[in-house]
Design a protein around this nucleic acid. Structure first.
Length: 153
DNA sequence: GCCAACGTTGGC
DNA sequence: GCCAACGTTGGC
């Protein structure tokens, strides 16, 4: 069982959208490192911190879990899609995604608050210049965050 | 809107 | 394979 932090811009897709939909394909990842995390390391049931980025109040907005193994991202094959990739083919897909399923919307744990906890000082999200949209989360960090949010582990 | 950081692209 | 140019991310 692993743990992950996955960023989404709430203006694109927010924790409320996920709460409404139940689960969603995490399409549109076009970074190889993030793709590899989904394709090679994620397992059904892995814990996910749903993070709101590029917004007024960036931070962790809810808890989710990996709901499916990785499979080819459908948007790469669609010439009309924003995430179309001319170099990808059905026989040789380049991009993959898992489905992510809601566990619960929590209170917002703002980035500014995350920065204040020594227990979370090593999180990738705090590293300067970090742009990866999917990052691994240490089990101890996961437990600390759940405790801080008043959630059971 | 600014700008630092960093991944990707493409000419050589 | 190098590396400058370019585009994107994301907090502020």
């Amino acid at each position: 069982m692993r743990y992950w932090l996955m960023k989404s811009e709430p203006s694109e897709y927010s924790i409320d959208d996920l709460a409404r939909d139940g689960s969603v394909p995490w399409f549109g990842v076009r970074n190889y490192q993030a793709r590899n995390f989904m394709r090679d390391q994620m397992r059904v049931g892995d814990g996910v911190l749903f993070y709101h980025s590029s917004c007024a109040e960036p931070g962790i907005a809810g808890l989710a879990e990996v709901a499916t193994p990785a499979y080819p991202d459908a948007t790469q094959f669609d010439p009309k899609a924003k995430y179309y990739d001319a170099k990808a083919t059905v026989d040789s897909p380049r991009w993959f995604n898992v489905d992510v399923k809601i566990k619960k919307k929590t209170r917002l744990l703002p980035l500014s608050e995350i920065r204040g906890y020594p227990e979370l000082a090593n999180m990738r999200i705090l590293a300067r210049g970090n742009r990866l949209s999917i990052t691994p989360v240490d089990p101890a960090e996961w437990r600390f965050i759940l405790k801080t949010l008043g959630e059971k582990a």
